[in-house]
């Protein structure tokens, strides 16, 4: 049966009705962008894998109550869960930092300034530039690029106004343009 034309919400409903193939289709739509959103927010491959799995586990176990059939509702819901888990993890990491007075953990795959010197490729420079963005601007950029959500949807998710999101994006792009000088 071809499920490719079904909406996300319909696929989720069919999965909860017992159709595993519906979940497979839904999963294939979001696996890569969601993974990248998590990976580039956390900047740590192992942690990203755990959190990514946790996001889908939440979808599987708790979204039976999800009944919003508005187009795009599932996508917003999926990224909302991911974002909430990222915030939880970030809070735990901050608490740990305060309690132990350990130096800030450096993400394993985050390039150091030394390595940065070797990045002459524009793509690599872009990734470094994204990593260097302030958290709120990076979040706005990644949500826009990876989720494809509208500014309004991102604003709702982040619990702020559309203009604020627009502003964060504007600042993010300005920095990226500066860091990618010569590439554009």
């Amino acid at each position: 049966m071809d499920l490719g034309n079904d909406s996300d919400e319909a696929l989720l409903s069919r999965y909860f009705g017992g159709e595993l193939t519906a979940f497979e289709t839904l999963y294939s739509r979001y696996r890569a962008p969601l993974y990248r959103f998590v990976l580039r927010t956390l900047r740590n491959g192992a942690e990203a894998e755990d959190l990514y799995h946790e996001v889908w586990s939440r979808i599987i176990t708790t979204s039976q109550r999800f009944s919003d059939v508005t187009p795009g509702a599932f996508k917003a819901y999926l990224y909302q869960i991911a974002r909430n888990l990222l915030i939880d993890r970030s809070r735990r990491a901050t608490l740990q930092l305060v309690e132990t007075d350990d130096p800030p953990e450096v993400a394993s795959d985050a390039p150091t300034p030394d390595i940065q010197l070797h990045y002459d490729d524009c793509g690599e420079r872009l990734l470094l530039a994204i990593d260097g963005l302030p958290a709120e601007q990076r979040e706005a950029f990644l949500l826009k690029e990876e989720s494809g959500l509208s500014l309004e949807q991102i604003a709702v998710m982040v619990s702020t106004g559309r203009e604020t999101i627009k502003s964060r994006l504007r600042y993010a792009m300005k920095k990226l343009r500066e860091l990618l000088e010569g590439c554009l």
Partner: peptide, 20 residues
């Protein structure tokens, strides 16, 4: 978008599908 090639590993995909 051209850089966006990262995707979950097959093992991670299998973990999620096993949960489902």
């Amino acid at each position: 978008r051209r850089l966006s090639r990262e995707a979950p590993s097959p093992q991670l995909d299998e973990r999620v599908m096993a949960t489902a």
